[in-house]
Write a protein that binds this DNA or RNA. Sequence first.
RNA 1: GGACCCGUGGUGUAGCGGCCCAACAUGCCAGCCUGUCACGCUGGAGAUCGCCGGUUCGAAUCCGGUCGGGUCCGCCA
Length: 626
Amino acid sequence: MIETPSSAASLATPYRTHTCGALRASDAGSPARLAGWVHRRRDYGKLTFIDLRDRHGITQVVVDAGDAPEASEVAARMRPEFVVAFEGEVALRQPGTENAKLETGAVELQVRTATILNEAKTPPFYINDPDAQIDETLRLKYRYLDLRREAMQRRLLLRSRLVHAIREVHHGSGFVEVETPNLIKSTPEGARDFIVPSRLQPGEVYALPQSPQQLKQLLMVAGVDRYFQIARCFRDEDLRGDRQPEFTQLDLEMSFVDEATVMDFVERMAIEVSRAVVPERALLATPFPRFTYAEAMERFGSDKPDVRFAMELVDLEPELRGTDGAAASGFRVFDEALAGGGRVKAITVPGLADAPRSRIDELTEAAKRFGARGLAHLSVEASGSIKGPIVKFLGDDLAERLAARAGAAPGDLVLIVADTTAVTNDVLGRLRAELGTQLGLADPDVLAYAWVHRFPMYQWDVENGRWDATHNPFSGVVPEDEVLLTTASGDPALPTPDDPAGRARAMQYDIVLNGWELGGGSVRIWRHDLLERSFALQGYTRERMQNMFGAMLEAFEYGAPPHGGIALGIDRWAALLSYQVNIREVMAFPKTQSGSDLMLDAPSEPDAAQYAELGLRFVGVPTRPS
RNA sequence: GGACCCGUGGUGUAGCGGCCCAACAUGCCAGCCUGUCACGCUGGAGAUCGCCGGUUCGAAUCCGGUCGGGUCCGCCA
């Protein structure tokens, strides 16, 4: 089906001289042996055509009862998905019967002998129909059959090429590939850990790594300088189309670097990898645009903006304030939002001015679902006049100025949200993303990478009354914000939401692809004193720090170099490069939303002996905190 | 933890209170056919409608529960 770039290597074996994708007109006249699966059979009684398939392609073989009566009898017993072999002579097809749809369509194998290597049950779904809609439960149960389908083969191969290209770039750039353990120490922070009971230390457990974060930082202390790994990670959280309990990251870390060093390398790597894996797809912009978190939220309402289209958020405030600075638009929702320190912002949707009432209602519903109290709109008619339920409050003049500020042309629809800064940006950002896809503003063939960096260091944890690292507790602070790592009172044990710490920005960067967060990383806090200050602000006692990160804190006392890194989701990357929104489509053996492997029937109950050996007993269905 | 959607021969769907011991396509089995490539033609087999219970004279169809799958919210350093 797919010819690999490395097809120069001979794939001949005792069973075959060629693969099913190899034969060309130039092979006519030579003897050949082929082996593979029966893709389709067309039986004329005295003449039988069999499309023989392997992952390299399809070759037509012809069995003529007149020339090879024994082979003809064998071929008559062949059924789809039987594993079979043929021996014969490669021949040009009769003029007019060539098949342009096949790479091998100029030739056919004229069979002398046919062999059934292995019979096959009738498969539960069609392997040979590329358009078949198959229930995913079935596909997952019979994944080995699903993977035979051309679309899945293509994705497996794309993923293989992706990982290969990644390795090539890293090995060519001074990186050392290091494997880290999968049985490590549980750190009760962040996502829920998968736990593995220890037989040798009864009553104690390992955890599977959520990522090799601490280990790769320890490798920096070890002097590895540049590390990378295609690492399997595990998180015991509820699943989504883009989240599986185990997934794969490109994990890397570099020493003696600043933000730009890491971002520049990752950007060059992403470009080289993209060009190697999907040369036919255009990169929207190189170098990748870089937005600060504040700018991304202000302009796109998202920390993972899809920059394939504009439709940016526009601040309407300047038009809404009178000469005295007071908000007096006449529309109470707007005025109250501004008076309360909130915002009034808009996006302009091209061509939706004539949208029926039901469409506006849908958008309003969506806005409410996203957390807004409502959604205001203005339609710019073909004549240029502004229509909409709120025009009567604003007056024609103000309505026109708002539409003009929003950049609306005749035929456009202006959607307006008035709320707190956070809600306004978030709601408009989600509407923008949804409409961008719906209206086809985002070119599916384009790859739009972008950076978002300078995230807030902490966010206020209302429930626990403390500061919480927004990303990784080891992210470093930008140098000029170092002085902000403090509380208003000066005592880290007494945090308040108004502390200077809330304004500190992290040396944290996310790489975004077509509106998906592809990966994130940071330059770490490698200095002892700053690390302790940061942990103290997050309310960690010395004892807790010691218990959770003891090895790392100790290691940092033995000479930790300045270092930083990033992790990229390989599954998401492969999905985006394959036009898929669901990472299950680019994983060989994924699990369902409830974490089951339908093929292996996992998870399953351990037997009594396993329990006994581990000193465990099942005490009943657990209660789960929400 | 919550909301919504789906579950009918092997597969994909239709049927949504009686016309249905369930229809169509494809697959499967048998027969015929020497140039097809989603081959064609003829015939045949195959589902008590995920499971349990209820409503009703009557349930694939309505209701409740349950199991399985999916989408989303919460969750995801």
